[in-house]
């Protein structure tokens, strides 16, 4: 299985760099073609509308044709969004995302390494089944006890309150994907490291990690996107405006300025911009990351 997963995402990662033999197509495929263009319109129109509207002034918004770009684009909406404290929210989101993803991937990698390398001791076998069980738990349903735990720890209304559960939620899938890739590392390499007298931590750092880097990147991206877009944890575990992360800030900004459509849409564009830039830079990694462990 590990082989397939690895092959799979390297395929997704490498993408079209080595185009496989072209499927013989003589007749155009009308059904698929039509559906694909319809879907394109469904996706593009709202996104196009968000972007052009965010540059319109509120007064012109009602007069102009909503699907035409503004004759006199304005950045006023963006100024308003930034004044509403979005720089702070952006920083909060960055702190929470980095603060959760880095430890989550690190501890998951260590655990995955231990699970694969051990011949199957009882403790590690039990640990592994715990993580597998964790894949089936809908975390949204355990939010009330998490709220209680966070209060008991005295962390309510802090960024740490968002970071700790986010790390835990990320672990099961990360361990599953990473262990599948570590299992692909040829045993002989581990064996020769061992004969050279390398410690486990050196083997992990100098052998397993470099050889599974694509998987680590993939898992990192998946977790980062999930946490960046998270809404429930900040909604429940924070309270003060200065602890908001971007999705929550979007929601309260919208509640406040719902009539000012251009400003609301500017806030949507602004909060999505970082991910969009990432998408442009590393689309293949990102898409591979999203289906890590799912696609066959």
């Amino acid at each position: 299985m590990a082989t397939t997963l690895a092959k799979d995402s390297s395929q997704a990662t490498a993408g079209h760099s080595a185009p496989p033999p072209k499927r013989v197509t003589r007749r155009p495929n009308w059904v698929a073609g039509t559906i694909s263009w319809i879907w394109l319109v469904i996706v593009i129109v709202p996104i196009y509308w968000i972007v052009i509207t965010s540059f319109k002034s509120q007064s012109n918004y009602y007069i102009e044709n909503p699907l035409l770009p503004p004759p006199a684009p304005t950045l006023a909406n963006y100024g308003m969004v930034i004044e509403a404290g979005f720089i702070q929210y952006f920083i909060n989101s960055v702190i929470v995302t980095l603060g959760a993803v880095v430890p989550a991937v690190a501890v998951s990698f260590m655990a995955a390494y231990a699970i694969v390398r051990s011949g199957g001791g009882r403790f590690l076998r039990w640990t592994n089944s715990t993580f597998l069980m964790g894949l089936a738990i809908p975390h949204q349903a355990t939010i009330i006890p998490i709220y209680l735990i966070i209060i008991q720890l005295g962390l309510y209304d802090s960024l740490m309150a968002l970071i700790l559960p986010s790390i835990a939620f990320a672990i099961p899938l990360s361990v599953l994907v990473l262990s599948n890739f570590i299992r692909d590392v040829p045993k002989e390499l581990f064996e020769s490291m061992r004969l050279d007298g390398a410690s486990e931590s050196r083997t992990l750092w100098n052998l397993a990690l470099p050889l599974t880097r694509p998987a680590v990147v993939t898992v990192t991206i998946y977790n980062a996107l999930t946490i960046w877009n998270g809404f429930l944890l900040p909604l429940i575990l924070t309270q003060s405006p200065d602890k908001r992360t971007l999705p929550l800030a979007l929601w309260s900004f919208q509640g406040q300025y719902s009539i000012n459509v251009p400003a609301v849409l500017a806030s949507v564009v602004l909060t999505t911009l970082p991910i969009l830039i990432l998408y442009v830079v590393g689309r293949r990694q990102l898409l591979a990351g999203l289906t890590a462990g799912f696609s066959k």
Binding site: M1, A104, V107, S108, M110, A111, Y113, A114, I115, V116, R117, S118, G119, G120, G121, F123, L124, R125, T127, N128, T130, F131, L132, G134, L164, I167, A168, I171, P172, V175, L176, S179, N180, R183, K187, F190, E191, R194, E200, L204
Partner: peptide, 26 residues
Amino acid sequence: SASLAAVPGGQGRGLPWLAVPALLFF
């Protein structure tokens, strides 16, 4: 998915400790 028969010959010393942080969080 983690067929634990995975890598024979992996020796155990200290290995379980590597899984402890993840387990604690989870």
